[in-house]
Design a protein around this nucleic acid. Structure first.
Lengths: 361, 361
DNA sequence: TTGTACGCGTTATCAA
DNA sequence: TTGATAACGCGTACAA
């Protein structure tokens, strides 16, 4: 209950001035070792906790942060991260943080390079980036390391030991979960498909991880100890993966219709991106026993979820990804907090029945 | 980006002193009307935004908050709200907020009355309360209103127009969701049960709401437009509710065994409290087609979820309830923000496969 | 009715 | 290597 301990108190107890305590506190040097030790001891004894309010007021610093992500007007998914980033920016404004967002066209590598270059040239104090292009991102990471600019990755996981943090979803686990959602409660044997729509799978790590998780779910059903569930022998499930082009291509309808008509035992489809809504219309024309699972609470997806064509959507908390991503930078730069190297956000299972809590929350 | 506008800037532009601007800003009176108007105009023109950092530092006020909730050592559920409240308290400490928690024995009304009385006598600046006892809470609300003490309700919803906010779950909707989770994918007709364990249903609003939601889920299946799903006619489902005593009573096992053995077509059980783990052991001894759904990520529940006996758990975000509950008070008292009168937290659907993201997050 | 001056806890800039 | 002191932006006595 004692009043909060201030620098002044430590100074008095150690018979030095506040200036000296401050130098010890921030390792600014220029202080005799024995004095340093005494001050540190007093800090321990009094359990000093710095007052962040006063600190930010006194420091009167400003931090310029840059965020690099796909343009939210070109792809609806990216609206949510954009919102999250700006929400965080508003809250952090009073701590002297300003934000500039660099948006790139996610279908064009040159656009990414251009915006990342612009961000770098602005010499920000920290960078938040959704590195959709694996190969093209690495050189920037290296450059930022040399310039000592802390950077945080979000949404797309790239192994990088030097990044302050990765904030995003666990793609492998989400594929695993999708398997469960498709198979759960299905009494009969049959086929499950994973569909990739317009993805450059080679240069996209997380799509591969999703497929691996998906297949592993069915593989582990084979394990003997699976509790008391009456599922058919796992060998009865066939898993197949299908690559679809952009939906505007004629071969999209062609390939999809072929799948739906040829695979008589098709029990479910897992769409590895947020574009489940492009497949949904085709299902209404076919036997409705085919269960559809996809990602993200886009307006189009929500429509089919409510209609019943989409059974479940996996929410990757995109808004929170942006929000916590920017906060990770602030924690590092402003609040000098420990920042977790890895922050997975929950994979929310969304059905028609709990949808309302996730839209506009 | 022009420098942040300060009170001093307004004062200069309006040819008055900072004291006058301050009085206008906080409606302290004692300022000529024409001067007041001029100052207000300047504030608009310069788009003045108060610096909360400097404000809290300057004001140097302290706020004593009281939280009233069931003892977390007597019932494991209440550990999470307790954690959330304390997490918020730690963050808010630097804004001059101190917290005292008053814990009551949720099985004893007199304990509740005692602690609520203690909290009231401490004359706090704000109160956060989980009002499990409906009737007994109302007089306290009245008293707090008279004393002008703002109070926030959490976890248990009680209609009260005067409360600053209610933070918690939508009980009706969670029952509805539970219906879906039990029925989903079940091809055959049968019976679904909702089990209440050791609950005083008459004095507990949210248990009633859960049951209503649960029954309504099956009722709405009767509606004609339900999309393309191959469920049997809704009349084929029988819904029954069962009241169980505390599990230490002999009649607990008796009643439960009776249910399991007599209801040959029992497809699922929905436990309306966090005590699904008390029913789970009985299921392993019976035909495993009975699906079990309950609430909350208690250690015991998690055990049976991983084992497969419990199919889904609905997470009511108890930790967040405490966290945001306390923040609602801080927003009102310290930050002078608008506080939403109602804040529903998400109903997370937890399966074995996405569990990991919700424990210790 | 208005203005002045000090304090909040910290940082940063000088002298010493 | 130290210590005194002016900011930072705002709240609040108290004086005018």
């Amino acid at each position: 209950m004692a009043k909060n301990v201030r620098i002044k108190d430590i100074a008095a107890k150690a018979n030095v001035s506040v200036g000296t305590v401050d130098r010890v506190l921030h390792n600014r040097g220029r202080v005799a070792e024995d004095v340093r030790q005494k001050v540190l001891l007093m800090m321990k004894e009094l359990e000093y906790e710095p007052n962040m309010i006063a600190r930010t007021l006194g420091a009167n610093r400003t931090y310029r942060l840059a965020a690099i992500q796909p343009n939210h007007t070109l792809d609806p998914y990216w609206q949510a991260p954009w919102d999250g980033i700006h929400k965080a920016a508003r809250e952090l404004q009073q701590y002297g943080i300003t934000l500039t967002v660099y948006s790139y066209d996610m279908t064009r590598v040159d656009s990414f390079l251009e915006q990342a270059e612009l961000a770098t040239q602005s010499e920000p104090h920290g960078i938040l980036i959704a590195p959709l292009f694996y190969r093209e991102s690495l050189p920037f990471f290296k450059q930022w390391q040399q310039q000592q600019i802390p950077y945080v990755l979000f949404n797309s996981y790239i192994t990088d030991i030097e990044a302050v943090s990765y904030v995003g979803q666990d793609s492998y686990q989400s594929g695993f979960l999708a398997g469960k959602l498709l198979q759960f409660g299905q009494a009969q044997a049959g086929t499950f498909a994973i569909a990739h729509i317009a993805e450059d799978i080679a240069n996209s790590v997380h799509i591969t991880q999703k497929e691996r998780g998906f297949r592993d779910y069915f593989a582990q059903l084979a394990a003997p100890q699976n509790g008391p569930n009456k599922t058919p022998a796992p060998s009865l499930y066939t898993i197949l993966s299908i690559d679809l082009p952009h939906s505007r291509e004629p071969s999209f309808a062609q390939k999809l219709t072929h799948l739906l008509e040829q695979e008589k035992e098709l029990l479910g489809i897992f769409v590895s991106t947020s574009k489940a809504y492009e497949i949904a219309p085709y299902l209404t024309q076919h036997p409705s026993t085919i269960r559809l699972v996809g990602y993200d609470l886009l307006e189009e997806n929500i429509h089919f979820l409510n209609e019943g064509t989409i059974a479940f959507l996996i929410n990757q908390n995109p808004k929170e990804q942006g929000y916590y991503g920017l906060y990770a930078l602030a924690d590092q730069l402003v609040f000098k907090k420990e920042v977790a190297a890895l922050k997975y956000l929950p994979l929310d299972v969304i059905a028609k029945e709990n949808l309302q809590y996730y839209v506009e929350k």
